[in-house]
Every structure is written in structure tokens, then in C-alpha cells.
Amino acid sequence: MNDPVVTRYATLADLEHIVDIHTRARLAYYQAGGLTADAVQDPTVREAQREGWTEAIESPDKRVLCATLGDDVVGAAAMGPPLTSAPDTTRAGQLYQIHVVPGRWGHGIGSVLHAAFLDYLVETDLSLGLIEVWERNTRALAFYTRHGWKPDGGSRPGPDDSRFLFLRLAPVRSLR
């Protein structure tokens, strides 16, 4: 029998699992986008990830979720207020990141975490979703496009002369 994917709020006890998943997923998508492992793996990055996830887990304004299969943490997502204060984002929530263990990509775990983000928007009475996606992460761009996200025309600099693209999702409705 296959265990269902279950989401739950992350705690600091999940921190090392989350950082490991983030590190492995980040390495996989950056390498798929043409960066070398040396360009992606830096001890200071892992420490910054640990600090960022700790802050998000402890923040009253952010929500961090783990996706589990049985006892295994196989994915994580972080969401909360927009990272920018553009005038049209007052009714928006931002999906900061979704990461799934690379060996589990394509098994619906990301979609379960995405649905949890939609629930977050509905629960907090927000009608617009925001996210940034690395332009060379074609797998993620296809995932978000399938889920109704559209580029808003904005971007910011990324690694190796690339860009992070700004995507929006509106209007938002829960899938559950």
C-alpha cells in the first residue's frame, strides 16, 4: 500500500531534513541549467539556508510546511508576505519556494505543496500569488505554468548572466 503525501507545519526538528532537501534540489536544478556543482555548492550557502529556514519556521508571518510520505520528509515549502512592497501586492502572498527530493520529482509532491499554498492564500483572504523562478529551471517553469501561473514581465538578476522571472497567479481558489 502506498502512503499518501501529507503536509504538516514544519518545526525546528525538521530543519536538517529541509536544508538537505533544499540543497539537493537546488544542486539538481542549477546543474540542469548549466551551472557546475562547484558554482552551486558553497558552505556559506548551506549556512544561509539553515538561517533562512530557521527564521521562516519561527516567524509568525510565514508558513513552512513539510510534505511527508510515511515517516519520510520528502518536500518543503515556504510562504508568506511579499518580499517586495509594490502597490499592487497588498492582497498577495508569496510562495518563496517549493523543494522536493529530486528522486521524487514527478510524483505529485510538489502539487500537494502547491495546493497547500493555495489554501494559505484562501485562509488569509489573499487573492494573488507571487513567485520568482530561475529562468533556466525549465522544470519549475513548466510546473507553475501547469498550475496557472503567468509571467508578470518583471525579473531580477540571477547567477551566470541569467534572470529570476516574476510570476503571478490570480484569482486564487483552493483546490481542496
Rank of each mutant, 00 (worst) to 15 (best):
A28Q: 09
D38H: 12
P87N: 08
G110C: 09
P171S: 02
P82N: 11
Q49Y: 15
S127Y: 02
F166W: 15
L126R: 04
F117V: 03
V100Q: 05
C66Y: 04
I57V: 14
T145V: 11
T138C: 03
L15R: 09
Y144C: 07
D119L: 07
R163L: 09
S162E: 03
A86I: 02
A37Q: 14
A78L: 01
A25E: 05
A28G: 02
W53N: 05
P151G: 11
D71Y: 01
V45D: 02
D88K: 01
A77N: 00
S155D: 15
V133Q: 09
K150R: 15
D38I: 07
G110T: 07
Q94S: 10
Y29A: 00
T54C: 06
V40G: 04
D38W: 04
R146G: 05
P159D: 14
R173Q: 15
Y30C: 04
A39K: 08
L141E: 13
Q41M: 12
T23G: 14
I21F: 06
H147R: 08
H107S: 10
F143N: 13
F143E: 12
K150Q: 14
L113V: 06
L126T: 02
G106T: 11
G70D: 11
V19A: 06
Y120G: 09
G103S: 14
I131S: 07
F166G: 09
L12Y: 01
G154Y: 12
R8Q: 11
P171H: 01
L69E: 08
I57L: 06
H17F: 13
A37S: 11
Y9W: 07
R24S: 15
P87I: 13
L126M: 13
P102D: 07
T7Q: 07
R163H: 03
